[in-house]
Design a protein around this nucleic acid. Structure first.
Lengths: 232, 232
DNA sequence: CGAAGTTTTGACATCGTTCAAACAACGTGG
DNA sequence: CCACGTTGTTTGAACGATGTCAAAACTTCG
């Protein structure tokens, strides 16, 4: 699929300061700043840990013919464990101006294993999303995940989130097409579940409803799911 | 989806002896035998490494309504790194009589990290399969994976593999339905790419052709993939 | 032979894709 | 300040791959 994004290079995203990120002790801590659209430099032979301080990374995998699957979206506070095999189409891309702390896994074994298990756990859930959910469930789950990782602020008690992902990124993440993502988001908007004026600032107006949709309890389409527990 | 399998409990699968599996040094190595359909006992609070000596395991994840996604199929020689969160529907099930070596990850840190990275790598590829491939590509990739993990023998130079998975297992693994799996396999059979008399013993008669299909070079349907690199 | 589970096959429905076009946002250069 | 190019988003119409539903064919075993 591969949907390129040039828009985000132009947006003056406010740099959110996340306190409480204790710098990891290391003989040579290294900060790296990555511009939107750029790949994280994963060239060194020895594996590295990449801890996101601020911004947004997309871990993705490319097929030979250009189809792209984003396997994880990584926000502030999270650490990337896997060493993407660039030879076979794996890489990590920044979706906005992103600040990354580069660490040595052997010097931080606990963080390394924790990050590894975290990635594994998220990937298992995402695989379940990709293989067993319909479009509405996928988008609802994606929004809830992003809302937790990229909280902007609360507006009248409603969570507001910054979408660093374009519709194309969302499509490549959720295993859909741009059109389906757009249609589903607009349907949610029409139903009053979410709201947005600009495509990249989304308010979750009915979080509970969104959670219901995410878990398959969708009155509009859930009839099929009853009984044998099937969908899609 | 959740397709239960009772057949495999009845099949007298030949126990393949895989030499070269050096037992890991540990103060207390433990062998475990699991019957088909049984879950691997993952109850201990401290994480464990499970190394398959012989047989076949399925790592899966359940949704609240019963839909199932098998995230990995594990054959002899491979080690399971992730600790399935049984609370949220994660578990590991034996698909045939399976012998497992239970190891302490802290006593085998190298094996633990290697297994972890291996799982992560496979899961990324599988996510790409689930999110970005059509039925024929999924089944072709699945067959090639299984042929590598469960080689039976060569018949007239053709690889023959034992399918410990039922059509339902294949469906839950590849993100399809039983019917689509069956139809796709029969189409491959009609095309002379594979062959089978019994549903669980499959011969890959044209491995090269199968690899082409797996990578998206399917003359019948690849026209769409040209140009912008899209599919499904 | 009958029961139970699995696989296969057919007919049909539909969700998501594909194709196409309009619209919106933004920066550039005149 | 405005026309224009570029990129992203939205919308519509039509198609088709895959799911759903139903039933028959097999296999294995009691």
């Amino acid at each position: 699929m591969l949907h390129v994004n040039t828009r985000q290079a132009l947006l003056p995203h406010p740099v959110l300061i996340h306190p409480g990120h204790v710098p990891i002790a290391l003989d040579k801590p290294l900060l790296q700043f990555i511009a939107p659209g750029d790949d994280v430099d994963c060239t060194p032979a020895s594996p590295r840990l990449y801890r996101v301080i601020d911004g947004c990374l997309a871990v993705y995998h490319l097929l030979a013919d250009g189809r792209r699957q984003i396997t994880d979206i990584v926000g502030p506070g999270r650490t990337i464990a896997q060493q993407p095999d660039r030879d076979i189409g794996g890489a990590i891309k920044a979706l906005t101006f992103t600040e990354v702390e580069v660490l040595d896994p052997t010097a931080n074994p606990d963080l390394a294993t924790e990050a590894s298990l975290d990635s594994l756990d998220r990937l298992v859930r995402h695989a379940t999303l990709l293989g067993r959910m319909n479009a509405a469930e996928k988008v609802a789950n994606g929004l809830l995940d992003l809302a937790a990782q990229f909280p902007r602020k609360l507006r009248q008690g409603r969570p507001v989130l910054t979408l660093y992902l374009t519709r194309g990124d969302l499509a490549d993440w959720l295993g859909l097409t741009v059109e389906t993502v757009s249609r589903t988001l607009n349907q949610f908007k029409r139903d009053g579940v979410i709201d947005y004026a600009h495509a990249e600032i989304v308010t979750l107006t009915k979080t509970e409803r969104l959670k219901e949709i995410a878990s398959g309890n969708n009155p509009a389409t859930s009839a099929r799911n009853n009984g044998k527990g099937k969908a899609q």
